[in-house]
Write a protein that binds this DNA or RNA. Sequence first.
DNA 1: ACAAATTAAATTTTACACAATTAAATTTTA
DNA 2: TAAAATTTAATTGTGTAAAATTTAATTTGT
Lengths: 145, 145
Amino acid sequence: MLKQESAIKLENQLCFAVYACSREMTRLYRPILSKYNLTYPQYLVLIVLWEKGECTVKDLGEDLYLDSGTLTPLLKRMQEAGLVVRTRSQLDERQVIIGLTEQGKEMQHKLSEIPSMIASRCDLQESEFHSLLNKFQDLLKRTSE
Amino acid sequence: MLKQESAIKLENQLCFAVYACSREMTRLYRPILSKYNLTYPQYLVLIVLWEKGECTVKDLGEDLYLDSGTLTPLLKRMQEAGLVVRTRSQLDERQVIIGLTEQGKEMQHKLSEIPSMIASRCDLQESEFHSLLNKFQDLLKRTSE
DNA sequence: ACAAATTAAATTTTACACAATTAAATTTTA
DNA sequence: TAAAATTTAATTGTGTAAAATTTAATTTGT
């Protein structure tokens, strides 16, 4: 392991870099997403739903590492905006199924320009992309057990 | 640049990984910091102040990538907890100088065990640490111009 | 079958995070 | 040097985050 003092600096720098990176990333998305009245977490919900069709609040929470205290009000706002529908499951009435409206589905190709806009903004090549993604996914695995 | 479809997936995965990583990181700190009644951003404020002695709200904001809307209430809470003092500069009364109390200074060695606890929790070796840090700092530079 | 345990979502509370606005003080410039 | 521009914090409003509690429904063990 590292010596005590250099460990303190390095470790703080690493955790801070991740923290600041995350906020800079969402700051990058904000002006683009605000044209569609979306926030970054709401955009992530759409991405999951485009992939899965529909799922429960719990499923969404597991995919996005978010709990119901965050998701419930967020999903209600998305319902008010006409993007999703929230219906209680017939089979298990504790579950709330989140599905896309037509408008929510249409967003998929309206928003298809976004990834390339962000990628060019970061000036990342394919190889760097993969390398970064591996690093982050590895760290994510380590930190979330 | 990447083909449109694979770009969408990759890019979403990268941004999502950054976002989830950041929350998992602070989740790692939370149980440790809560023993000292600190949050992760408050801990970062202490780290900056231990290094700098004292500085303005603006300085803190530049170091931490946070604005006054976040820092003002956060610093007021830290003042109430007896960790910092907020005094308006005599030279330029627009500026508020943030300094450490004795209690705030004492926290430095009380909290010195934290970095190694986190490092071992992530199971990172020194070389990995440096590699990760480089990647993230590079990405941070790209995204924040 | 039915009480106990578990599960799922909602609610409540506290604390960031940030855009936009406001207010006050300092600098610049005509 | 006085008006205009800039700078610095504070305030306001909206939207996450997440722990803790509550409520309701399902599952399990006897």
